[in-house]
Amino acid sequence: MPMDWIMGLAGGVLIGVAAAIYLLVNGRIMGASGIIGGLVDGSGRHDWIERAALIAGLIIVPGIATFIVGGTETHLTGNWAIIIVAGLLVGVGTRLANGCTSGHGVCGISRLSLRGIVATAYYIGAGGLTVVIFKHLLGVI
């Protein structure tokens, strides 16, 4: 559906502009897992206000937007076991790899960072394989 692609591109530009502002003004990498992880494990305690402010914006603004526009569904599975396992994998994996889709993907690839490109190749590969196995072979997602 081309309309979805246009919205994807427009949303992507917003994400890229956000990351660009964070880099050029604050001198930081806009990586979601790093920002959250640094708060959680204490490694980012010295600049916790900035991290908390970013997370607050990330939660509040989509909340207000969906409240006004409405009708947003995440279509997340109702299977709690899958949600818990997936959440643990995402938490451990992104912190072990030091980045996720925003840090390695958006910020890393745009810098032509080898680590960012390789990490992205691995998580997309693993994600694709997981969908093939759990959706098409096992039929659980």
Binding site: T72, L89, V90, G93, L96, N98, A126, G128, T130, F134
Partner: peptide, 29 residues
Amino acid sequence: NLILGSTLFGMGWGLSGLCPGPAVASLSF
């Protein structure tokens, strides 16, 4: 760590369709 971590992350991403940014952004709804 980069390879193992990214692989584990990809598995969780595939299972749920969520990565850290969207997971936090959709917390309210």
